[in-house]
Amino acid sequence: MHEPQLVMYEEEFHKINSILERLVRESNSKSIFLVDRNGQLIAHTGDTEHIDSTALASLTAGNIAATGGLAKLLGENEFTVLFHEGERDNIHISLVHRKVILVLIFDERSSLGLVRLRVKKAGDELARIFDGLLQKAEQGVGAGADSPFAEITDDDIDNLFRD
């Protein structure tokens, strides 16, 4: 397949988490989720306990995909920001580097202007990290003998289904 596999390492994961933690403070938002375009949750921070983060990840990716489809119909490359306004909570979804999706949930303690401002800066930092990860993937770091999957056996796979 053409798209390289997304692999997340300890070092990058910590960097991403610290960017998200800073972003949640600086933007006064309630929670932040970072999702890949295929709907896999990468990281989250803030008050995320009461939210089904797996479902949120899948739905935001679906949302971005559908909006991307609309963009193409209009001859646009992509709509990079989506904003949904609720009675209490609002959700700001942005596409970082056309690769990952940054989701901020915020209420009246913040504002769309502040969120947009902070997201832009954090987005640039996140983009650099994902560029690095992509490079690693292309160089094949984590593949071969390092990969936990190089040595899985058919028994390992069968064991998953043993109830």
Partner: peptide, 13 residues
């Protein structure tokens, strides 16, 4: 595309 997270020790497909 699968996602391998070494930090969370997770593989998502």
């Amino acid at each position: 595309m699968s996602f391998i997270n070494y930090s969370a020790r997770e593989i998502n497909t």
